[in-house]
Design a protein around this nucleic acid. Structure first.
Length: 235
DNA sequence: GCGACAG
DNA sequence: ATCTTGTCGC
């Protein structure tokens, strides 16, 4: 599978993007069970944006954590131009160029990557987490803060208890789950990225939750880091 | 024309 | 995502 398209500016129409998603869709594998105890490291990925002289810039941060000590073991980032506009359903085409470059700077090869955005929970099962797996060749998990409505299907609110969830089933297929990671806090929307099953994704996500945020630690830290980096690059 | 719309 | 002040609560 040729993946250099991510830097090809001729691939910028919705039809082109759709064609790519349809092809990659066949290569998704969600039956792989991964035991949390067998993991060593996991990474969180996020981006921040800003405008300067009418140009769009972005910075991607990847934070790698030791799963068991919860300590940061590596931190990389990549800053650059943003050329693709945000269109719901096509987020990956906008964010992947910076993500791929940032990932190249990693010396550690994380066992799993957690993304700020959907994975399989997507109209074509190709949210950012799933799409990115084909570049990283590693298991990925999607963590979205708001719900992306698919086929007019609404999500069912889980109980107000840590770990409670309701699966998002659309036309008989499980797309992901609405997950309460903290009590009295809005749920997150979890879905497989690729090369991992939903149950493992759930276990890993819950293992990475602390009192600081409803988001798993690596994603939260990457979010904070991108804001700090933006402040740095702006000045 | 109007509303929806991951980040 | 980003632009932004105050404000409620632990």
């Amino acid at each position: 599978m040729q993946l250099n398209y991510i830097h090809d500016f001729t691939l910028n129409t919705k039809q082109d993007f759709l064609a790519v998603q349809q092809k990659l869709k066949r290569l998704i594998h969600l039956s792989n069970a991964i035991d949390t105890d067998s993991l060593q490291t996991c990474a969180g990925v996020d981006l921040a944006y800003w405008e300067e002289n009418g140009e769009s810039f972005g910075v991607c941060s990847i934070i790698v954590l030791d799963v068991h000590t919860k300590k940061v073991v590596e931190k990389v980032h990549h800053f650059g131009n943003i050329n693709v506009p945000y269109v719901a359903g096509f987020l990956a085409f906008r964010e992947l160029p910076l993500i791929v470059e940032a990932a190249k700077k990693l010396t550690i090869e994380p066992d799993v990557f957690l993304f700020d955005g959907n994975g399989y929970l997507h109209p074509h099962h190709l949210g950012i987490a799933t799409h990115a797996s084909f570049f990283l060749n590693k298991p990925t998990i999607g963590i979205a803060k708001t719900y992306l409505k698919i086929k007019n299907h609404d999500f069912k609110m889980p109980d107000n208890q840590i770990g409670a969830y309701t699966d998002i089933v659309i036309e008989g297929e499980v797309y992901g789950r609405t997950l309460r990671t903290r009590q009295d806090v809005k749920p997150i929307f979890l879905s497989c990225g690729n090369f991992i099953d939903l149950e493992s994704s759930y276990q890993i996500t819950m293992t990475l939750i602390n009192q600081e945020s409803r988001l798993p630690i690596p994603v939260r830290l990457a979010d904070l880091e991108t804001h700090a980096l933006r402040k740095y690059y702006r000045d």
